[in-house]
């Protein structure tokens, strides 16, 4: 039933990339939904968000990510999986920098490099 080892790791890599894309896409969509300047307050704000695609795009990304993550974790040890999943933190910060012009201070760059290094150590060994 199980495919050969090579195709399992290809599937794991695919699911890992999908997870990063969906997590980052979902967060950015929520950010776009919440950050609209004319949205107003309270119920009006929620109505404004519900009438636009961003909120729904974010929810869709998260639902799909939920399934991708279950599939991903079932193919490798949990301790390895959660460590590899930490790359989401980096992806969101980098995307925030490019799409919303958020500042990358020296401390943030150090954090991003360290998390990336950790993921690389685990990924290259596993």
């Amino acid at each position: 039933m199980l495919p050969a080892h090579g195709s399992i790791s290809a599937l794991v890599a695919c699911l890992w990339v999908f997870n990063v894309l969906l997590d980052t896409g979902g967060q950015l969509a929520f950010k776009a939904a919440a950050g609209h300047p004319e949205a107003g307050d309270g119920l009006a704000r929620w109505k404004h968000m519900a009438a636009r695609p961003w909120l729904w795009l974010g929810i869709g990304c998260y639902l799909f990510e939920f399934l991708v993550w279950i599939a991903f974790l079932s193919l490798l040890p949990l301790s390895e999986g959660v460590l590899l999943g930490s790359i989401n933190i980096v992806a969101i910060m980098v995307a925030g920098r490019f799409l919303f012009g958020e500042k990358l201070t020296r401390m943030r760059v150090a954090g991003i490099l360290l998390v990336t290094l950790g993921v690389a150590i685990v990924g290259l060994a596993g």
Partner: peptide, 12 residues
Amino acid sequence: GAIAIVAGIVCL
């Protein structure tokens, strides 16, 4: 890997 990641999270 976990040590590097935790250090990175603390920096962030």
